[in-house]
Computed example of a mutant assay.
Amino acid sequence: MNATELNYTTEPFCLLDIGYSQIFNTCLLEVAVILFLTVLIISGNLVVIFVFHCAPLLSHHTTSSFIQTMAYADLLVGVSCLIPSLSLLHHLEGLNERLTCMVFSYMVSVLKSVSMASLACVSIDRYVAITRPLSYTALVTPCRLRTCIILIWLYSSLIFLPSFFGWGKPGYHGDVFKWCSSWDTQPIFTAFIVAALYAPAAFTVCFTYAHIFRICRQHTRQISERRARFGPQDPEPGEQACTDKRYATVLFRITSVFYILWLPYIIYFLLESAGIYHHAIASFLTTWLAISNSFCNCLIYSLSNSAFRKGLKRLCLLCLQRTDNKKPLGEPPAPLQPACHV
């Protein structure tokens, strides 16, 4: 590999082959798509993180630890998306293109692996809460939660390391570097990633949520039959097991959208690795469709979770209150209330 291939080229690499501007010497369509998603992902996940830290209502659920982990990972995905944006805008000249491509691909793959593993852990957490409500607090302790989150980051970091040792491309396909486009996926490495990450996570989610909703339907039917026979009772036996059904439904929506957006990417990843299909436009679109999930997570959560909406409303009111409390000079400032209660 010669020096020309290793160094950043003066003319940007356009995967879509459309929207290239001679005036700005850049791929306008790709820059617009990537910058738009970058702004959405960063701003959306910053809002989620602030609401979680400032809304005590959300600390009720232990799954908030995994949701926050996913929000931090998605925020870092948005930050890492600045790399292709800057490369298209000629702000990364002089960097080693090969190393930059490998590091960026590794970062994105690890961060999305953290999101995938966090969703799987969320489904396990809800499964334990529904199936073992009496022993849940003893099984799911803060120490075990922290250990699980550390293991998620560690496992995600290790699983893609072979990409630095010639095993093949870790999975990122939205190439904006010429070297990235010539970096081939390898069937063995792809099979390893699918077997070690994609398949176990998908199987876990399907298994746990199928059992959660089946158990909740059984308890709902039993409660309805008992009420019809004996009238309302306080408390209803079995009613506690399904108090989290609505919350589980919200998390199921997030998980479903995650896999819907990632399914085209995974299919293309498998087809390309097997040498069956390769197309530049499909590569770009499937990759950035999957990355857009980093914004969809916070959007679905904010629209579906009532506690989150209350926390967001409270945060907005506190921000407005702080603005209103700024009086002109000479007037005593009104006392400020703390914005966060941790």
Score class of each variant (00 low, 15 high):
Thr220His: 14
Ala120Val: 03
Leu6Gly: 07
Cys54Ile: 05
Pro338Ser: 09
Ile291Phe: 08
Ala274Met: 11
Pro56Thr: 07
Gly168His: 01
Arg309Thr: 04
Leu29Arg: 02
Glu11Trp: 09
Leu139Lys: 06
His53Arg: 10
Gly94Phe: 14
Leu263Glu: 05
Arg146Tyr: 11
Leu75Asn: 00
Lys169Pro: 00
Cys319Thr: 14
Gln240Pro: 04
Pro332Cys: 10
Cys101Trp: 06
Arg246Phe: 03
Thr63His: 03
Thr4Gln: 08
Tyr247Cys: 13
Tyr247Leu: 13
Leu303Lys: 12
Cys206Ser: 09
Ser135Leu: 09
Ile23Gln: 04
Arg146Leu: 02
Ser118Lys: 00
Phe50Pro: 01
Phe189Tyr: 08
Pro235Val: 03
Ser43Phe: 15
Glu30Met: 08
Ala199Arg: 05
Asp234Met: 10
Leu82Gln: 02
Lys178Arg: 15
Phe13Ala: 04
Ser87Ala: 06
Thr62His: 10
Thr190Asp: 11
Glu236Met: 15
Ser123Pro: 07
Gly238Ile: 04
Asn7Leu: 15
Leu35Pro: 04
Leu40Ile: 15
Gly231Ser: 11
Asp184Gly: 14
His53Phe: 05
Phe308Cys: 03
Gln233Trp: 08
Ile223Ala: 05
Tyr259Val: 09
Asp184Ile: 11
Ala196Gln: 07
Ile34His: 00
Val47Ala: 03
Val39Trp: 05
Ile193Phe: 07
Leu270Gln: 14
